[in-house]
Amino acid sequence: MYNFEFVKPATVDEAIAALREEDAQALGGGQTLLPTMKQRLAMPSKLVSLGGIADLVGVSSDGATLTLGGATPHAVVASNAGAYPALAALAGGIGDPAVRNRGTVGGSLANNDPAACYPSAALASGATIVTNAREIAADDYFQGLFSTALDEGEIITAVRFPIPQRANYQKFEQPASRFALVGVFVAQYADGVRVAVTGAGNDGVFRWSEAEAALSGSFTPDAVDGLSLSGDDMIGDLHGTGAYRAHLVKVMTKRAVAACN
């Protein structure tokens, strides 16, 4: 990779200051960024590690909301987010154990890979992405492939997930990368059901509103039977056509609902 300056601040303020430099970039767990840099596809002048900021790591719950520090590794979420079991299970299924020990929720959400798991949880939960500067609703946060509402130098300090009554995540893995070929997160709240889909959409993670309406009426797998998605709106690649992904979205949605019941 190209060389860069490495800094590891101890506070969010120091990190923000360091990130003001042109071409400086925040480093979470690096599980996506470092492979990208090894391919020389990114060349930050400075990497600002968030791994030394104790405030950014942790899982807490007040019963209604689960809050993750932005630099909390997936493995910590998997073992400590018992208040939101579907989220803990999702975190425990990302990548592999060694990746989960380094990769962070903030890093995943900031990258917004169209096949990553976390974006579906954030969107289906109506989560709030908390940054050093503001709070962003998940519905406003995801803006297409690898694109988010984050500004330059803005870092995710926490993510707040309203805890649903029931929820489940079903991932159908792409056989090589083990990212989601299709991942569906279904969450039932008092005011309705939210369904978010990752891995499939041409524009990245999206809410399947027809399914949400149907499931809000009847939270059963059969409720989505009459629905269909267009393969034209789905990613088509060597691992699966758009039509196949559209089909899988429905299958995974039904399975997620079944798993909730």
Partner: peptide
Amino acid sequence: LLTGSFMDYAMPRASD
């Protein structure tokens, strides 16, 4: 080559 790394070339894993 579209399958130019282990991201797209599916190597058998223990669970396969």
